[in-house]
Design a protein around this nucleic acid. Structure first.
Lengths: 148, 148
DNA sequence: AAATATTGATATTTATAAATACCAACTTTA
DNA sequence: TAAAGTTGGTATTTATAAATATCAATATTT
């Protein structure tokens, strides 16, 4: 499904990533605390960013700076994504999952539910990787609803 | 379908509406310019607000002040709504409608397309009336996708 | 083992979205 | 028909989200 390319490999330490993006190291940590991004963590807890991470963050920056969407706005847009359709969650899975109902933030920010996602690393999840902007989210909804 | 209740009747002039909402008259006009609301207009071009308008604006205020979602964020969330499913647009209708593809603002902000909505007054449209907040929009998407 | 980088956390700054104030022309109402 | 209210416009203020600066403790690199 997902082709494991070199763009997925976590290679940039936080300082390098910050330089590539022309932002401060702290801003990167802030985006993470706000559940916008899920950088790779080494065993030492140090972060590493992939080329795809950089592209994703550039997209977030454009939403904030060009489209003037606030961080909480972005989180709410992420919450619109029907993740259960991507993962083909069962009715029972869905009933146990707060991401199914909530509209306050992305599914990958949900912790503690007893779902099929509980043990997964969201960083490797199709939902996180492919639906990180409003365009692709609306695309998904539109395609799902009109292909019936 | 829609029960024409007293809550729909446009009765409050802008000043009264502003007082009910504890905001300035200009803020109300700003929300309208940003396509968040569609107040009733008298032939003289003066605005009138209904009880439902007041409730809707209170909801917008809560999104801005409590949830910290920017106006452009709210517009983008509105754009996620699959309006074509509510109106049962044909394939051809959809192909002519920019609201089908765009993710920059609500369908009721679209002008000039040759669609079934062209002659309609969006103020009386179910899409505008019922899906004015993130909760109801996600509800709609969830119900549509899981009732299949 | 010394030099360089990262960690999380708090305190501060800056950029700007959201709201207000003001304007002359027009409309309503009493 | 006079007083009060509304119109759309620009210019200004304010509140705060987003970003930066600084910190001691810990990890990495050479």
């Amino acid at each position: 499904m997902l082709n494991e390319s070199s763009n997925d490999k976590p290679v940039y330490p936080i300082r390098t990533a910050a330089k590539l993006l022309n932002i401060s190291v702290h801003t990167l940590r802030m985006y993470e605390k706000e559940d916008l991004i899920l950088p790779f963590k080494k065993s030492s807890n140090h972060r590493l960013y992939s080329r795809n991470d950089i592209d994703r963050i550039n997209c977030i920056r454009s939403a904030i700076n060009d489209s003037k969407i606030s961080i909480n706005g972005i989180k709410t847009i992420y919450a619109m994504m029907p993740c259960w359709e991507v993962l083909n969650c069962s009715k029972e899975d869905r009933s146990k999952c707060s991401a199914f109902l909530r509209h306050s933030g992305p599914c990958w920010a949900v912790k503690g539910d007893d779902t099929i996602c509980a043990t997964k690393d969201c960083r490797n999840c199709l939902v996180y990787q492919e639906y990180g902007e409003c365009g692709s989210i609306k695309n998904f909804i539109r395609n799902k609803l009109t292909s019936l």
